[in-house]
Design a protein around this nucleic acid. Structure first.
Lengths: 198, 198
DNA sequence: ACCTGAACACCGTTCAAGT
DNA sequence: ACCTGAACACCGTTCAAGT
C-alpha cells in the first residue's frame, strides 16, 4: 500500500504504536483512537493503511509468529545430520527461546491469536515449522524414512501449549529453565516412541 | 444471588441464552442486548445477575472446564492401582473425549479463555486435574515415589495445546481418532522418560 | 498522494421507575 | 424481590473537506 516514503513511515509508526498500546493498556483497552494518537496521526489515516482494528492486531501477531517460525527453521538447519535426540533438543530450545525473547509480547498476543483469522495464522506458521522439521529429519542417521505430518504438528502444538501455560502463570526465570529441559525431554521421548512404533 | 425460584429460572435462561448466542453469532457479536433478548428478559435484568459481559462468558467457560476436570478426575479414580502406561492411556483418552463431547463449545471457548481472568480459571481447573493425577500415580506399582508437579502441569498443557490445534483446524473424526492415540503415546513416553531420569 | 476530524451507528452499563 | 427500558458514555468506522 505505501506509495511514497511518507506513508511508509506512517505505517511503521502505527505498527509500533499498536505494540506499545497493546503492552501498556492490554488488548481490551486498545482502541483505534488511542493507537492513532500514540502514532501521532488521526484515526482516518490509520484506516487508510489498516482496514480495521483486527488487522492492526493481526499485523503484530503475524510479525511475532514469523519470528518464532524463523527461529525454528534456523534451528532445523543447524541440526541437520545429527541424531534425532540432538535435533529435538535444538528445536525445543530454539522454540522456547524465541517465545521468551519478548515474554510480554508473547503473552499479550494469546488474546489476539484466538480472534477470527488467528488460528489460520497460527496454522500457517506451524506449517513453515513442520516443513523445516521434516527436511531436517530426513538427514538424521537414526530416523525412519516415513515421517508422520500429524505427529510433528502434535509435537508443535504440545510445545506451544506448555509454553503458553508457563507464560500465563508468570513465567519466572526458574520456570522457563524447567520448561526448556522438560520440553526437550518431551520431544525426545515422543520422537523415540514414534520411531519404535513404526 | 438467586433468592426466589423466579430468579433462579432467570439466571438459568440467561446462561443458556449465552451459549446459544455464542454458538450462533460468535463471541465477537455476542452483545448483552442479544443475550437478554434471547433469554426473554431485559438488559437490566441480565445485569442484576451477571455484573458484566465477561462474567457471562466466564460462566460458560467455568462450566465447560469444570466438566473436563471432572472427567479427568473420574479417569484417575478408575485407573488407580494400574501401571503408569495404563494410567496415561485412561487420562489422555478421557481428556480428549471430554473436549470432544461438544467440539462447538470447546472451540468457541478458546476465544474467552484468553480474556483477563481466563488464564486463572484454566489454571484452577488444571490444579484439580493435577491433584487427581498425583493421587492416582501414588497407587501405581511402577511409579517413583516423588512426582514432579511441573511435569504433570506440562503434560496437561501439552495435551490441551495439541487438542486445541486439532479443534481449530476442523477436528474431523479421523483427526480426533489420531489425536487420541498420539496423545496416549505422548503421555506414556514422557512419563516413562521421567521415571527413567529420576 | 496523503491526512484530518466531525459525524454515525452500535454496544456496554446504569438507574429511576414500575410490579 | 424482581423486572423494565430509556439514557449515557464510549468505541469502531466513514467520508467530505483539506494540503
Amino acid at each position: 500500500m505505501p506509495v511514497q516514503a511518507r506513508s511508509a513511515a506512517t505505517v511503521q509508526a502505527i505498527f509500533e504504536a499498536t505494540i506499545q498500546v497493546l503492552l501498556r493498556d492490554g488488548s481490551d483497552r486498545l482502541t483505534t483512537t488511542r493507537v492513532a494518537e500514540r502514532a501521532g496521526v488521526s484515526v482516518g489515516t490509520l484506516y487508510q493503511y489498516y482496514p480495521n482494528r483486527q488487522a492492526l492486531l493481526f499485523a503484530v501477531l503475524e510479525d511475532h509468529l514469523g519470528k518464532v517460525a524463523t527461529a525454528v527453521e534456523d534451528a532445523c538447519l543447524r541440526a541437520r545430520g545429527r541424531t534425532v535426540a540432538e535435533m529435538m533438543r535444538e528445536v525445543a530450545e530454539a522454540f522456547v527461546d524465541a517465545k521468551m525473547a519478548r515474554p510480554d509480547i508473547s503473552t499479550a498476543l494469546y488474546r489476539i491469536a484466538a480472534d477470527v483469522g488467528g488460528p489460520a495464522l497460527v496454522r500457517r506458521m506451524g506449517e513453515r515449522s513442520r516443513k523445516a522439521l521434516e527436511a531436517m529429519l530426513r538427514t538424521a542417521p537414526d530416523a525412519p524414512a516415513c515421517q508422520d505430518r500429524f505427529a510433528i504438528d502434535t509435537l508443535f502444538a504440545a510445545m506451544a501449549g506448555a509454553t503458553r501455560s508457563v507464560l500465563e502463570s508468570g513465567g519466572s526465570p526458574a520456570m522457563i529453565r524447567k520448561l526448556r529441559s522438560h520440553l526437550v525431554l518431551l520431544c525426545q521421548s515422543y520422537a523415540a516412541a514414534l520411531n519404535r512404533s513404526v
